Simulated scan of single mutants.
Amino acid sequence: MAAISSLSFTALGQVSGRKRLVSSARPFSSTFDGFRFRKKIFSVSIGTKTQNLNSRMAIIQCMSSVTEVPTVCETKSNFLKAYKRPIPSIYNTVLQELIVQQHLMRYKRTYQYDAVFALGFVTVYDKLMEGYPNDEDREAIFRAYIQALKEDPEQYRNDAQKLEDWARTQSASLLIEFASREGEVEGILKDVSERAGDSGSFSYSRFFAIGLFRLLELANATEPTVLEKLCAALNINKRSIDRDLDVYRNLLSKLVQAKELLKEYVDREKKKREERADQRANEAITKCIGEFQYAGQ
Rank of each mutant, 00 (worst) to 15 (best):
T71Q: 00
A115S: 13
A281R: 06
I289G: 01
R268F: 05
S8A: 06
S201N: 03
T123R: 06
K84I: 02
F35H: 10
P27T: 11
A232S: 14
K259I: 09
E291L: 12
Y111M: 02
I285W: 06
P88G: 09
L7F: 14
Y113S: 02
N235S: 14
Q155G: 09
P224L: 13
R109S: 01
S193K: 04
D114Y: 01
A284Y: 05
Q147A: 07
L215R: 03
R36G: 02
G211F: 04
Q102Y: 04
V15M: 05
S201A: 05
R243C: 02
L262I: 03
D191R: 04
E68V: 14
V247Q: 11
A115V: 02
Q257A: 09
I60P: 02
E264H: 13
E228P: 00
G17C: 13
L95W: 04
G187M: 04
Q112Y: 01
K270M: 03
R20A: 12
K76N: 11
I210H: 10
Q96L: 10
E291A: 09
V185G: 00
F121V: 06
F213G: 12
T10L: 03
L262W: 08
N52I: 11
Y91E: 14
A82G: 05
A232N: 12
F117H: 04
D152R: 15
S173Y: 09
Q112W: 13
A295T: 11
G200H: 11
D114G: 08
V192S: 02
V256A: 06
Y294R: 15
V266G: 00
C288H: 06
Q161S: 13
T225E: 15
S65D: 01
Q155E: 12
A219L: 09
L174G: 02
M105R: 00
E264K: 10
R36F: 08
N54M: 08
Y265T: 15
A160R: 10
A160P: 10
K229H: 13
S205Y: 07
Y204I: 03
D246N: 13
R206K: 12
I90K: 05
V124I: 13
R26C: 12
L149V: 03
M1W: 06
A179W: 01
M63T: 05
K270V: 05
K49T: 08
A115N: 07
V122R: 00
I241F: 13
A118W: 06
D135H: 06
L98S: 11
Y145G: 01
S43V: 09
D198V: 12
P70T: 03
E264A: 12
R85T: 10
P133K: 10
L218A: 00
